[in-house]
Simulated assay, not measured.
Amino acid sequence: MNVNEQEMLESITTKVMEWEVEDGSSWIKCPAGLFKKEHLFELWNPLQNITDAWRVVEKMIESGYQFELECKLGEYYARFSKEQPFQWGAAKSATEAICSAAYKAARGYVQ
């Protein structure tokens, strides 16, 4: 996992899923228990697992976002919108597009 993916997963974990960072910054408390970050991302990785990515979508919807996902010519586009401007992500996989859009929304990027 590269640095950008690590940062994206950490941001989604804390800002979207609202899981707590415990004991400094090396532990994360999630519904399944307390995990070291590196072990959690081996078990839960929405960048690679569509079930995990869909949990991110569900959490965003619970937070008031609307969601769209489409595929055009082999490229996936995910969009979360709550208020204008919307946040979108484009990638070769649906999971990466979902994570990119959720990351941008969580970080408050302006399109």
Rank of each mutant, 00 (worst) to 15 (best):
Asn2Lys: 15
Asn2Met: 12
Val3Cys: 04
Val3Lys: 14
Asn4Val: 14
Glu5Trp: 06
Glu5His: 10
Met8Arg: 15
Ser11Val: 11
Ser11Leu: 11
Ser11Cys: 11
Thr14Ala: 02
Thr14Ile: 05
Thr14Asn: 03
Met17Ala: 02
Glu18Cys: 03
Glu18Asp: 08
Glu18Ile: 00
Glu20Ser: 11
Glu22Asp: 03
Asp23Pro: 00
Gly24Trp: 05
Ile28Thr: 09
Lys29Tyr: 08
Pro31Val: 00
Gly33His: 03
Phe35Ile: 08
Lys37Ser: 12
Lys37Asn: 15
His39Phe: 13
Leu40Asp: 09
Phe41Asn: 05
Phe41Met: 05
Trp44Asn: 03
Trp44Ser: 04
Gln48Phe: 02
Gln48Ile: 01
Ile50Asp: 04
Ile50Lys: 08
Ala53Trp: 07
Trp54Val: 08
Trp54Glu: 13
Arg55Gly: 01
Val56Phe: 01
Glu58His: 13
Lys59Ile: 05
Met60Gly: 09
Glu62His: 14
Ser63Lys: 15
Gly64His: 09
Gly64Ile: 11
Tyr65Phe: 15
Tyr65Ser: 07
Gln66Phe: 13
Glu68Pro: 00
Leu69Asp: 10
Lys72Ser: 10
Lys72Pro: 00
Leu73Val: 04
Gly74Arg: 01
Tyr76Glu: 04
Tyr77Gln: 13
Tyr77His: 14
Ala78His: 09
Ala78Cys: 13
Ala78Arg: 09
Arg79Gln: 15
Ser81Leu: 11
Glu83Ser: 11
Glu83Trp: 10
Phe86Glu: 12
Ala91Arg: 10
Lys92Tyr: 08
Ser93Val: 01
Ser93Met: 02
Ala94Val: 05
Ile98Trp: 06
Ile98Arg: 03
Cys99Pro: 02
Ser100Tyr: 03
Ala101Leu: 06
Ala102Asp: 02
Ala102Ile: 03
Lys104Asp: 01
Lys104Phe: 10
Ala106Lys: 01
Tyr109Trp: 10
Val110Asp: 07
